[in-house]
């Protein structure tokens, strides 16, 4: 099995590693880099638990090989909070009871963070459709949807206040 040298920036840090060509990005992040916040739930792209940001876009890390991210930039759930300060979305997950076992949560946070950057004012239906790429078996999704809606509302208030 051939081995490749790759260099990748993860959460602002450079990693230079050797990987087999078949190594999944999810395994690379967890096993090689020790970033176990990215979870693996199905390895066939349905559950969404392994979602990360690749060059600013949410992608399933179980459907990408590590060699494909050579020279690219990645953010994982470990990279969301800065200096121990949770993002508004993370805080609202706490407020709205948007997580129970927490296993699906990192993927949902990554998808939602990306989505809200590109669609700051989604409707309820749009939020649900974005979320439908993730399986959560604990919450029935309601707490998650509330947390996202609260974040959207806060952003809108912020935006309104700035305009005034």
């Amino acid at each position: 099995m051939s081995v490749h040298k790759i260099e990748v920036t993860i959460n602002g840090k450079k990693y230079q590693e050797q990987v087999e060509s078949r190594m999944l990005l999810s395994d690379f992040l967890r096993e090689t880099c020790g970033l176990t916040g990215t979870h693996v739930g199905c390895e066939h792209g349905v559950c969404g638990a392994c979602t990360i940001h690749l060059n600013g876009s949410a992608v399933r890390s179980c459907l990408i090989f590590a060699v494909q991210v050579d020279g690219q930039e990645i953010t994982t759930v470990e990279g969301l909070a800065k200096d121990g300060e949770l993002t508004p979305l993370q805080r609202n997950f706490i407020e709205c009871h948007g997580l129970q076992c927490g296993f699906c949560t990192p993927g949902i946070l990554m998808s939602t963070t990306d989505y809200l950057q590109k669609n700051p004012q989604p409707t309820l239906q749009e939020i649900k459709e974005m979320l439908s790429g993730h399986l959560c078996r604990c919450t029935g999704y309601e707490g998650i949807i509330k947390a996202i809606q609260k974040t959207v509302d806060e952003n809108n208030h912020h935006y309104e206040a700035e305009r005034r």
Partner: peptide
């Protein structure tokens, strides 16, 4: 009361069997 478990789980610091 909000949960004491949440912060670690939201920041990727949960300790599951594979971690």
């Amino acid at each position: 009361v909000t949960r004491v478990e949440d912060k670690r789980l939201l920041t990727g610091q949960g300790k599951y069997i594979d971690d």
